[in-house]
Design a protein around this nucleic acid. Structure first.
Lengths: 209, 209
DNA sequence: TTGGGGTGTTACTTGTCAGTAACATCACCG
DNA sequence: CGGTGATGTTACTGACAAGTAACACCCCAA
Protein backbone atom coordinates (compact mmCIF):
# COMPACT_ATOMS: atom_id res chain seq x y z
CA UNK A 1 0.00 0.00 0.00
CA UNK A 2 2.73 2.38 0.95
CA UNK A 3 5.24 1.38 -1.62
CA UNK A 4 5.44 3.32 -4.88
CA UNK A 5 3.06 1.76 -7.39
CA UNK A 6 5.60 0.36 -9.79
CA UNK A 7 3.50 -0.95 -12.61
CA UNK A 8 4.76 -4.05 -14.29
CA UNK A 9 4.94 -2.22 -17.58
CA UNK A 10 7.14 0.44 -16.05
CA UNK A 11 9.54 -1.80 -14.20
CA UNK A 12 11.12 -5.04 -15.25
CA UNK A 13 12.46 -5.46 -18.73
CA UNK A 14 11.07 -2.21 -20.04
CA UNK A 15 10.54 1.13 -18.43
CA UNK A 16 13.95 2.58 -17.65
CA UNK A 17 15.67 1.38 -20.76
CA UNK A 18 14.44 2.04 -24.25
CA UNK A 19 13.12 -1.47 -24.49
CA UNK A 20 9.44 -2.14 -24.96
CA UNK A 21 7.45 -4.31 -22.61
CA UNK A 22 6.28 -7.66 -23.96
CA UNK A 23 2.64 -6.76 -23.88
CA UNK A 24 3.28 -3.77 -26.07
CA UNK A 25 5.46 -5.75 -28.46
CA UNK A 26 2.75 -8.37 -28.75
CA UNK A 27 0.12 -5.77 -29.53
CA UNK A 28 2.31 -4.21 -32.20
CA UNK A 29 3.01 -7.56 -33.79
CA UNK A 30 -0.67 -8.41 -33.68
CA UNK A 31 -1.51 -5.18 -35.41
CA UNK A 32 0.86 -5.80 -38.26
CA UNK A 33 0.03 -9.44 -38.76
CA UNK A 34 -3.71 -9.27 -38.21
CA UNK A 35 -3.98 -6.38 -40.61
CA UNK A 36 -1.78 -7.76 -43.33
CA UNK A 37 -2.95 -11.36 -43.34
CA UNK A 38 -6.32 -11.32 -41.67
CA UNK A 39 -7.28 -12.32 -38.17
CA UNK A 40 -8.05 -15.93 -38.89
CA UNK A 41 -4.97 -16.30 -41.02
CA UNK A 42 -2.53 -15.64 -38.20
CA UNK A 43 -1.80 -17.95 -35.29
CA UNK A 44 -0.88 -16.81 -31.81
CA UNK A 45 2.44 -18.58 -32.23
CA UNK A 46 3.27 -16.37 -35.16
CA UNK A 47 2.36 -13.25 -33.25
CA UNK A 48 4.45 -14.27 -30.28
CA UNK A 49 7.42 -14.99 -32.50
CA UNK A 50 7.06 -11.71 -34.36
CA UNK A 51 6.94 -9.99 -30.97
CA UNK A 52 10.23 -11.63 -30.02
CA UNK A 53 8.64 -13.67 -27.30
CA UNK A 54 6.58 -16.84 -26.99
CA UNK A 55 3.09 -18.10 -26.66
CA UNK A 56 3.21 -18.47 -22.89
CA UNK A 57 4.03 -14.83 -22.32
CA UNK A 58 1.31 -13.91 -24.75
CA UNK A 59 -1.24 -15.85 -22.76
CA UNK A 60 0.00 -14.25 -19.55
CA UNK A 61 -1.00 -10.88 -20.97
CA UNK A 62 -4.10 -11.83 -22.92
CA UNK A 63 -6.70 -14.29 -21.80
CA UNK A 64 -7.36 -15.69 -25.23
CA UNK A 65 -6.89 -14.98 -28.88
CA UNK A 66 -10.37 -13.52 -29.03
CA UNK A 67 -9.58 -11.00 -26.33
CA UNK A 68 -6.28 -10.20 -28.00
CA UNK A 69 -8.27 -9.42 -31.12
CA UNK A 70 -10.50 -7.11 -29.13
CA UNK A 71 -7.47 -5.33 -27.66
CA UNK A 72 -5.95 -5.04 -31.12
CA UNK A 73 -9.06 -3.29 -32.37
CA UNK A 74 -9.26 -1.11 -29.28
CA UNK A 75 -5.76 0.14 -29.87
CA UNK A 76 -6.66 1.05 -33.43
CA UNK A 77 -9.79 2.84 -32.27
CA UNK A 78 -7.75 4.84 -29.78
CA UNK A 79 -5.36 5.78 -32.55
CA UNK A 80 -8.20 7.02 -34.71
CA UNK A 81 -9.51 9.10 -31.83
CA UNK A 82 -6.05 10.54 -31.41
CA UNK A 83 -6.18 11.63 -35.04
CA UNK A 84 -9.38 13.52 -34.35
CA UNK A 85 -7.75 15.22 -31.39
CA UNK A 86 -4.74 16.15 -33.44
CA UNK A 87 -6.89 17.71 -36.12
CA UNK A 88 -8.93 19.53 -33.51
CA UNK A 89 -5.76 21.05 -32.08
CA UNK A 90 -4.35 21.93 -35.48
CA UNK A 91 -7.58 23.65 -36.54
CA UNK A 92 -9.12 24.82 -33.31
CA UNK A 93 -12.58 26.36 -33.66
CA UNK A 94 -12.61 25.61 -37.36
CA UNK A 95 -14.64 22.47 -37.90
CA UNK A 96 -14.67 22.87 -41.64
CA UNK A 97 -10.87 22.89 -41.73
CA UNK A 98 -10.90 19.78 -39.55
CA UNK A 99 -13.17 18.07 -42.02
CA UNK A 100 -11.00 19.07 -44.92
CA UNK A 101 -7.84 17.92 -43.18
CA UNK A 102 -9.55 14.67 -42.32
CA UNK A 103 -10.62 13.77 -45.82
CA UNK A 104 -7.23 14.79 -47.13
CA UNK A 105 -5.54 12.56 -44.60
CA UNK A 106 -7.76 9.63 -45.50
CA UNK A 107 -7.13 10.18 -49.16
CA UNK A 108 -3.40 10.08 -48.55
CA UNK A 109 -3.64 6.93 -46.46
CA UNK A 110 -5.48 5.17 -49.21
CA UNK A 111 -3.27 6.46 -51.98
CA UNK A 112 -0.03 5.24 -50.47
CA UNK A 113 -0.34 2.46 -47.93
CA UNK A 114 -3.18 0.46 -46.49
CA UNK A 115 -4.18 -1.80 -49.30
CA UNK A 116 -6.06 -3.78 -46.77
CA UNK A 117 -8.69 -1.20 -45.94
CA UNK A 118 -10.18 -0.56 -42.55
CA UNK A 119 -9.05 -3.06 -39.96
CA UNK A 120 -12.24 -2.65 -37.98
CA UNK A 121 -14.49 -3.32 -40.93
CA UNK A 122 -12.34 -6.27 -41.95
CA UNK A 123 -12.66 -7.71 -38.49
CA UNK A 124 -16.43 -7.42 -38.73
CA UNK A 125 -16.28 -9.48 -41.90
CA UNK A 126 -14.01 -12.08 -40.39
CA UNK A 127 -15.99 -12.45 -37.17
CA UNK A 128 -19.64 -13.03 -38.04
CA UNK A 129 -20.44 -14.16 -34.51
CA UNK A 130 -22.40 -11.32 -32.96
CA UNK A 131 -21.23 -12.33 -29.49
CA UNK A 132 -17.57 -12.03 -30.25
CA UNK A 133 -15.89 -9.56 -27.86
CA UNK A 134 -14.52 -7.66 -30.81
CA UNK A 135 -17.97 -6.79 -32.13
CA UNK A 136 -18.70 -4.32 -29.37
CA UNK A 137 -15.44 -2.51 -30.08
CA UNK A 138 -16.18 -2.33 -33.78
CA UNK A 139 -19.74 -1.11 -33.43
CA UNK A 140 -18.82 1.46 -30.79
CA UNK A 141 -16.02 2.86 -32.86
CA UNK A 142 -17.92 3.05 -36.13
CA UNK A 143 -20.87 4.72 -34.44
CA UNK A 144 -18.60 7.15 -32.66
CA UNK A 145 -16.76 7.95 -35.88
CA UNK A 146 -19.96 8.72 -37.67
CA UNK A 147 -21.30 10.85 -34.82
CA UNK A 148 -18.11 12.85 -34.79
CA UNK A 149 -18.46 13.49 -38.50
CA UNK A 150 -22.03 14.61 -37.99
CA UNK A 151 -21.12 17.02 -35.21
CA UNK A 152 -18.31 18.47 -37.29
CA UNK A 153 -20.60 18.98 -40.26
CA UNK A 154 -23.15 20.62 -38.02
CA UNK A 155 -20.58 22.82 -36.32
CA UNK A 156 -19.29 23.84 -39.72
CA UNK A 157 -22.74 25.15 -40.52
CA UNK A 158 -23.30 22.78 -43.39
CA UNK A 159 -26.78 21.92 -44.48
CA UNK A 160 -28.24 18.52 -43.66
CA UNK A 161 -25.25 17.52 -41.55
CA UNK A 162 -26.44 13.96 -40.98
CA UNK A 163 -26.88 13.29 -44.64
CA UNK A 164 -23.55 14.82 -45.57
CA UNK A 165 -21.73 12.98 -42.81
CA UNK A 166 -23.25 9.71 -43.93
CA UNK A 167 -22.16 10.38 -47.45
CA UNK A 168 -18.58 11.05 -46.41
CA UNK A 169 -18.63 8.08 -44.12
CA UNK A 170 -20.00 5.63 -46.64
CA UNK A 171 -17.75 6.85 -49.42
CA UNK A 172 -14.74 6.26 -47.22
CA UNK A 173 -15.90 2.83 -46.16
CA UNK A 174 -16.62 1.93 -49.73
CA UNK A 175 -13.29 3.14 -50.95
CA UNK A 176 -11.40 1.19 -48.37
CA UNK A 177 -13.23 -2.04 -48.95
CA UNK A 178 -13.04 -1.62 -52.70
CA UNK A 179 -9.30 -1.18 -52.49
CA UNK A 180 -9.09 -4.77 -51.42
CA UNK A 181 -11.15 -6.05 -54.31
CA UNK A 182 -9.62 -4.24 -57.24
CA UNK A 183 -6.46 -2.72 -55.82
CA UNK A 184 -5.09 0.62 -56.89
CA UNK A 185 -6.77 0.69 -60.29
CA UNK A 186 -10.24 1.01 -58.85
CA UNK A 187 -12.22 4.03 -57.85
CA UNK A 188 -10.96 3.80 -54.29
CA UNK A 189 -7.86 5.84 -54.98
CA UNK A 190 -9.88 8.76 -56.29
CA UNK A 191 -12.07 9.10 -53.25
CA UNK A 192 -9.83 11.87 -51.93
CA UNK A 193 -10.75 14.35 -54.61
CA UNK A 194 -14.34 13.20 -54.57
CA UNK A 195 -14.59 14.10 -50.92
CA UNK A 196 -12.79 17.40 -51.45
CA UNK A 197 -15.27 18.53 -54.07
CA UNK A 198 -18.09 17.20 -51.93
CA UNK A 199 -17.00 19.46 -49.09
CA UNK A 200 -16.28 22.37 -51.36
CA UNK A 201 -19.68 22.31 -52.99
CA UNK A 202 -21.63 21.43 -49.84
CA UNK A 203 -24.24 24.10 -49.22
CA UNK A 204 -23.88 26.16 -46.04
CA UNK A 205 -26.76 27.20 -43.89
CA UNK A 206 -27.53 30.89 -44.29
CA UNK A 207 -26.43 32.36 -41.03
CA UNK A 208 -24.55 35.34 -39.67
CA UNK A 209 -20.76 35.33 -39.59
CA UNK B 1 -16.17 -40.14 -79.44
CA UNK B 2 -19.27 -41.20 -81.24
CA UNK B 3 -21.56 -41.62 -78.30
CA UNK B 4 -23.92 -38.78 -77.41
CA UNK B 5 -22.25 -36.41 -74.97
CA UNK B 6 -24.49 -37.12 -72.02
CA UNK B 7 -23.28 -34.69 -69.42
CA UNK B 8 -23.19 -36.05 -65.91
CA UNK B 9 -25.33 -33.19 -64.73
CA UNK B 10 -28.06 -34.06 -67.20
CA UNK B 11 -28.16 -37.78 -66.65
CA UNK B 12 -27.84 -39.72 -63.45
CA UNK B 13 -29.63 -38.75 -60.33
CA UNK B 14 -30.84 -35.42 -61.59
CA UNK B 15 -32.02 -34.25 -64.99
CA UNK B 16 -35.29 -35.95 -65.69
CA UNK B 17 -36.69 -35.86 -62.21
CA UNK B 18 -37.14 -32.72 -60.19
CA UNK B 19 -34.13 -33.60 -58.08
CA UNK B 20 -31.06 -31.46 -58.09
CA UNK B 21 -27.66 -32.80 -58.99
CA UNK B 22 -25.11 -33.02 -56.19
CA UNK B 23 -22.84 -30.42 -57.68
CA UNK B 24 -25.67 -27.91 -57.67
CA UNK B 25 -26.72 -28.80 -54.15
CA UNK B 26 -23.16 -28.35 -52.97
CA UNK B 27 -22.91 -24.95 -54.60
CA UNK B 28 -26.15 -23.84 -53.03
CA UNK B 29 -25.09 -25.02 -49.59
CA UNK B 30 -21.73 -23.32 -50.04
CA UNK B 31 -23.47 -20.09 -50.92
CA UNK B 32 -25.59 -20.08 -47.81
CA UNK B 33 -22.91 -21.15 -45.41
CA UNK B 34 -20.02 -19.16 -46.83
CA UNK B 35 -22.13 -16.06 -46.86
CA UNK B 36 -23.64 -16.43 -43.42
CA UNK B 37 -20.60 -17.57 -41.51
CA UNK B 38 -17.62 -16.54 -43.58
CA UNK B 39 -15.45 -18.62 -45.85
CA UNK B 40 -12.88 -19.58 -43.30
CA UNK B 41 -15.52 -20.32 -40.73
CA UNK B 42 -17.07 -23.16 -42.69
CA UNK B 43 -15.55 -26.56 -43.29
CA UNK B 44 -16.08 -28.65 -46.36
CA UNK B 45 -17.65 -31.30 -44.18
CA UNK B 46 -20.32 -28.89 -43.12
CA UNK B 47 -21.03 -27.88 -46.69
CA UNK B 48 -21.29 -31.48 -47.81
CA UNK B 49 -23.65 -32.29 -45.00
CA UNK B 50 -25.81 -29.25 -45.67
CA UNK B 51 -25.91 -30.35 -49.31
CA UNK B 52 -27.19 -33.77 -48.25
CA UNK B 53 -24.12 -35.51 -49.47
CA UNK B 54 -20.59 -36.11 -48.24
CA UNK B 55 -17.07 -34.83 -48.54
CA UNK B 56 -16.02 -37.40 -51.14
CA UNK B 57 -18.68 -36.36 -53.58
CA UNK B 58 -17.77 -32.75 -52.94
CA UNK B 59 -14.18 -33.45 -53.87
CA UNK B 60 -15.28 -35.32 -56.96
CA UNK B 61 -16.89 -32.12 -58.21
CA UNK B 62 -14.44 -29.55 -56.89
CA UNK B 63 -10.70 -29.97 -56.85
CA UNK B 64 -10.21 -28.19 -53.56
CA UNK B 65 -11.90 -25.89 -51.13
CA UNK B 66 -10.14 -22.94 -52.75
CA UNK B 67 -11.61 -23.78 -56.13
CA UNK B 68 -15.01 -24.32 -54.56
CA UNK B 69 -14.72 -20.81 -53.19
CA UNK B 70 -13.92 -19.50 -56.64
CA UNK B 71 -16.92 -21.29 -58.10
CA UNK B 72 -19.11 -19.96 -55.31
CA UNK B 73 -18.10 -16.42 -56.18
CA UNK B 74 -18.48 -17.05 -59.88
CA UNK B 75 -22.05 -18.15 -59.37
CA UNK B 76 -22.78 -14.97 -57.45
CA UNK B 77 -21.19 -12.87 -60.17
CA UNK B 78 -23.35 -14.58 -62.77
CA UNK B 79 -26.40 -13.85 -60.70
CA UNK B 80 -25.51 -10.17 -60.51
CA UNK B 81 -25.05 -10.07 -64.27
CA UNK B 82 -28.44 -11.66 -64.64
CA UNK B 83 -29.90 -8.82 -62.60
CA UNK B 84 -28.42 -6.32 -65.03
CA UNK B 85 -29.96 -8.22 -67.91
CA UNK B 86 -33.32 -8.32 -66.20
CA UNK B 87 -33.26 -4.58 -65.66
CA UNK B 88 -32.17 -4.00 -69.22
CA UNK B 89 -35.17 -6.00 -70.46
CA UNK B 90 -37.57 -4.30 -68.10
CA UNK B 91 -36.41 -0.83 -69.11
CA UNK B 92 -35.15 -1.26 -72.62
CA UNK B 93 -33.51 1.80 -74.12
CA UNK B 94 -33.96 3.70 -70.90
CA UNK B 95 -30.64 3.61 -69.06
CA UNK B 96 -31.77 6.12 -66.48
CA UNK B 97 -34.69 3.92 -65.52
CA UNK B 98 -32.29 1.00 -65.29
CA UNK B 99 -30.12 2.96 -62.90
CA UNK B 100 -33.08 3.95 -60.81
CA UNK B 101 -34.38 0.41 -60.65
CA UNK B 102 -30.91 -0.78 -59.75
CA UNK B 103 -30.39 1.53 -56.82
CA UNK B 104 -33.90 0.83 -55.64
CA UNK B 105 -33.25 -2.89 -55.77
CA UNK B 106 -30.03 -2.52 -53.85
CA UNK B 107 -31.71 -0.38 -51.26
CA UNK B 108 -34.34 -3.04 -50.76
CA UNK B 109 -31.79 -5.79 -50.49
CA UNK B 110 -29.98 -3.93 -47.77
CA UNK B 111 -33.10 -2.90 -45.93
CA UNK B 112 -34.48 -6.39 -45.53
CA UNK B 113 -31.96 -9.19 -45.82
CA UNK B 114 -28.29 -9.42 -46.38
CA UNK B 115 -26.81 -8.25 -43.12
CA UNK B 116 -23.58 -9.70 -44.28
CA UNK B 117 -22.94 -7.31 -47.12
CA UNK B 118 -21.34 -8.13 -50.44
CA UNK B 119 -20.08 -11.68 -50.59
CA UNK B 120 -17.41 -10.76 -53.12
CA UNK B 121 -16.01 -7.97 -50.99
CA UNK B 122 -16.14 -10.16 -47.93
CA UNK B 123 -14.18 -12.82 -49.73
CA UNK B 124 -11.54 -10.26 -50.63
CA UNK B 125 -11.19 -9.48 -46.96
CA UNK B 126 -11.00 -13.09 -45.96
CA UNK B 127 -8.50 -14.06 -48.64
CA UNK B 128 -5.58 -11.67 -48.50
CA UNK B 129 -3.43 -13.90 -50.66
CA UNK B 130 -3.25 -12.20 -54.05
CA UNK B 131 -2.70 -15.53 -55.77
CA UNK B 132 -5.87 -17.12 -54.51
CA UNK B 133 -8.03 -18.32 -57.40
CA UNK B 134 -10.95 -16.34 -56.00
CA UNK B 135 -9.16 -13.03 -56.34
CA UNK B 136 -9.39 -12.98 -60.11
CA UNK B 137 -13.14 -13.56 -59.92
CA UNK B 138 -13.59 -10.78 -57.41
CA UNK B 139 -11.53 -8.23 -59.28
CA UNK B 140 -13.10 -9.07 -62.60
CA UNK B 141 -16.61 -8.77 -61.25
CA UNK B 142 -16.05 -5.54 -59.35
CA UNK B 143 -14.40 -3.93 -62.35
CA UNK B 144 -17.16 -5.13 -64.63
CA UNK B 145 -19.83 -3.85 -62.26
CA UNK B 146 -18.27 -0.44 -62.14
CA UNK B 147 -17.86 -0.28 -65.91
CA UNK B 148 -21.47 -1.18 -66.38
CA UNK B 149 -22.49 1.63 -64.06
CA UNK B 150 -20.32 4.05 -65.98
CA UNK B 151 -21.77 3.06 -69.31
CA UNK B 152 -25.30 3.38 -67.97
CA UNK B 153 -24.57 6.83 -66.58
CA UNK B 154 -23.07 7.85 -69.87
CA UNK B 155 -25.94 6.42 -71.89
CA UNK B 156 -28.36 8.24 -69.62
CA UNK B 157 -26.72 11.48 -70.65
CA UNK B 158 -25.54 12.32 -67.16
CA UNK B 159 -22.65 14.64 -66.64
CA UNK B 160 -19.29 13.26 -65.55
CA UNK B 161 -20.47 9.67 -65.83
CA UNK B 162 -17.28 8.19 -64.37
CA UNK B 163 -17.43 10.32 -61.30
CA UNK B 164 -21.11 9.69 -60.73
CA UNK B 165 -20.73 5.97 -61.27
CA UNK B 166 -17.89 5.85 -58.80
CA UNK B 167 -19.96 7.69 -56.28
CA UNK B 168 -22.84 5.26 -56.61
CA UNK B 169 -20.47 2.34 -56.56
CA UNK B 170 -18.57 3.45 -53.48
CA UNK B 171 -21.69 4.42 -51.58
CA UNK B 172 -23.07 0.97 -52.18
CA UNK B 173 -19.89 -0.75 -51.16
CA UNK B 174 -19.65 1.40 -48.08
CA UNK B 175 -23.23 0.76 -47.09
CA UNK B 176 -22.86 -2.96 -47.41
CA UNK B 177 -19.66 -3.17 -45.43
CA UNK B 178 -20.98 -0.78 -42.82
CA UNK B 179 -24.04 -2.92 -42.33
CA UNK B 180 -21.78 -5.57 -40.90
CA UNK B 181 -20.15 -3.24 -38.41
CA UNK B 182 -23.11 -1.42 -36.94
CA UNK B 183 -26.09 -3.39 -38.17
CA UNK B 184 -29.36 -1.82 -39.11
CA UNK B 185 -28.96 1.27 -36.99
CA UNK B 186 -26.14 2.63 -39.10
CA UNK B 187 -26.22 4.79 -42.18
CA UNK B 188 -26.19 1.75 -44.43
CA UNK B 189 -29.95 1.38 -44.39
CA UNK B 190 -30.47 4.89 -45.66
CA UNK B 191 -28.28 4.52 -48.71
CA UNK B 192 -31.33 3.82 -50.84
CA UNK B 193 -32.77 7.28 -50.56
CA UNK B 194 -29.32 8.82 -50.75
CA UNK B 195 -28.81 7.19 -54.11
CA UNK B 196 -32.27 8.16 -55.30
CA UNK B 197 -31.69 11.82 -54.59
CA UNK B 198 -28.23 11.51 -56.08
CA UNK B 199 -29.73 10.30 -59.33
CA UNK B 200 -32.59 12.77 -59.23
CA UNK B 201 -30.32 15.76 -58.78
CA UNK B 202 -27.56 14.55 -61.06
CA UNK B 203 -27.01 17.15 -63.78
CA UNK B 204 -27.75 16.05 -67.32
CA UNK B 205 -25.65 17.01 -70.24
CA UNK B 206 -27.28 19.71 -72.33
CA UNK B 207 -28.38 17.88 -75.42
CA UNK B 208 -31.37 17.62 -77.66
CA UNK B 209 -34.54 15.78 -76.55
C1' DT C 1 22.33 -12.91 -0.47
C1' DT C 2 17.88 -14.14 -1.11
C1' DG C 3 13.42 -14.19 -2.75
C1' DG C 4 9.99 -13.16 -6.01
C1' DG C 5 7.84 -11.70 -10.24
C1' DG C 6 8.07 -11.66 -14.90
C1' DT C 7 9.95 -14.25 -18.64
C1' DG C 8 11.79 -18.19 -21.68
C1' DT C 9 11.52 -23.15 -23.01
C1' DT C 10 9.79 -27.50 -23.94
C1' DA C 11 6.44 -30.61 -24.37
C1' DC C 12 1.96 -31.85 -24.22
C1' DT C 13 -3.36 -32.26 -24.89
C1' DT C 14 -7.20 -31.60 -27.51
C1' DG C 15 -9.64 -30.38 -31.39
C1' DT C 16 -10.31 -29.28 -36.13
C1' DC C 17 -9.75 -29.44 -40.86
C1' DA C 18 -8.26 -30.48 -45.82
C1' DG C 19 -7.70 -34.15 -48.55
C1' DT C 20 -7.41 -39.33 -49.77
C1' DA C 21 -8.06 -44.50 -50.01
C1' DA C 22 -10.79 -48.44 -50.30
C1' DC C 23 -14.88 -50.42 -50.63
C1' DA C 24 -20.08 -50.76 -50.74
C1' DT C 25 -24.21 -49.38 -53.11
C1' DC C 26 -27.49 -47.92 -56.34
C1' DA C 27 -29.50 -46.47 -60.66
C1' DC C 28 -29.75 -46.69 -65.13
C1' DC C 29 -28.66 -48.36 -69.97
C1' DG C 30 -27.99 -51.69 -73.22
C1' DC D 1 -29.36 -59.56 -66.57
C1' DG D 2 -24.86 -57.57 -66.52
C1' DG D 3 -22.04 -53.79 -66.38
C1' DT D 4 -20.71 -49.06 -65.83
C1' DG D 5 -20.53 -44.72 -63.71
C1' DA D 6 -21.91 -41.83 -60.06
C1' DT D 7 -22.62 -41.70 -55.35
C1' DG D 8 -22.42 -43.09 -50.25
C1' DT D 9 -19.60 -44.68 -46.21
C1' DT D 10 -15.96 -45.30 -43.22
C1' DA D 11 -11.67 -44.67 -41.81
C1' DC D 12 -7.54 -42.67 -42.15
C1' DT D 13 -3.31 -39.26 -42.60
C1' DG D 14 -0.95 -35.16 -41.88
C1' DA D 15 -0.89 -30.71 -40.58
C1' DC D 16 -1.91 -26.98 -37.75
C1' DA D 17 -3.76 -24.31 -34.05
C1' DA D 18 -5.50 -22.94 -29.20
C1' DG D 19 -4.45 -23.34 -24.76
C1' DT D 20 -1.90 -25.43 -20.56
C1' DA D 21 1.67 -27.51 -17.37
C1' DA D 22 6.06 -27.81 -15.45
C1' DC D 23 10.29 -26.11 -14.92
C1' DA D 24 14.52 -23.24 -15.77
C1' DC D 25 16.12 -18.54 -15.84
C1' DC D 26 17.25 -13.81 -14.74
C1' DC D 27 16.94 -9.30 -13.20
C1' DC D 28 15.79 -6.40 -9.57
C1' DA D 29 14.81 -5.08 -4.83
C1' DA D 30 15.01 -5.55 0.09
Amino acid sequence: MSRPPVNKSESGAAGRSGAVAPRERILRAARELFYARGIRGVSVDEIAEAADTNKMTLYRHFESKDLLIAEYLKSLAREADALWDELARAHANDPLAQLRAFVERMGQMMAQSGDRGCALANAAVELPDKDHPARAVIEEHKTHQREHLVSLCRAAGLEKPERLADEIFLLLEGARVNLQSVGRDGPGTRVGEMLCTLLRTAPRKNQAT
